[in-house]
Amino acid sequence: MSKKKKEETVQKHKLFKIKKRKPNRSRVGDFFLYLFLLLMAILMVFPLVFTVNNALKPLDELFKFPPSFWPNNPTTDNFSDLFVTMGKSWVTFSRYIFNTVFITVVGTLGHIIIASMAAFVLAKYDFPGGKTFFNVVVVALMFTGYVTGIPNYLIINGLGWIDTYWAIIIPAFAAPIGLFLMKQFMEGLPMSLIEAAKIDGASEWRVFSGIVMPNVKPAIMTIIIYSVQNLWNNRAATYIYSEEKKTLVYALQQVQSGGIARTGQAAAVSVVVMIVPIAVFIAAESQVLETMASSGLKD
């Protein structure tokens, strides 16, 4: 009798733990693992916070001994100085912004359209060469910019695109990561959706633009993140040499390399450069994660 009762309580206990969804966890283990996680999180954030702090320090504090971590009298002088410096350059500040925005917007838009078209047929149709092509794209995920840098320069030179925006925009259209993520995400779309539309008489292009694209919004957001990151940080120093065509990041880094006198402004530049990609990511986080759920590589 007592044995049965004991078993019952054990069962009850087990069910209770399962309901809490953490059946296999010990309190002590939880405590130490999360303590570890917290410590790591602080370590990860430390340099970023330090960057922001540095930008808020007035010049005398930047060279104080012993150096401090937090600013004592935070100011935004560094930022206003930066705008003054940028305003004084013979190429206007707005021109740099225009360059970066133009490159980022056109490059991202083109990449989305072209990569989605390719991803659509690769994910939804079985045709000769499709699988092979996709495998090649997966291998291409491993190409770093420097490995292909030299021949790319020769090709772009041959096309006559040196010192034009197209030298950055057009190669960005063909970035492998966008096609890869898009294709993996589209595999999750039900085929019946497409077939239904076809029975109703929609053309392939209508199916693609009217049915498929509205249903892959999370993937589009993710591609935007990757593309913006890539293009925003692209200094394009090898392809563009005219001052009026340089990107904002490049111009800012020119300020940054201005030596001791520009230390404060350089710190401000770091903050400006890092804030944009982080903000874009925070805005789209949930959609990015939804896309990444299908990013797995099957063999």
Partner: peptide, 11 residues
């Protein structure tokens, strides 16, 4: 075409 021009051809 673009993938070929800027990824395969360079390699």
């Amino acid at each position: 075409i673009l993938f070929f021009a800027f990824n395969i051809l360079p390699v």
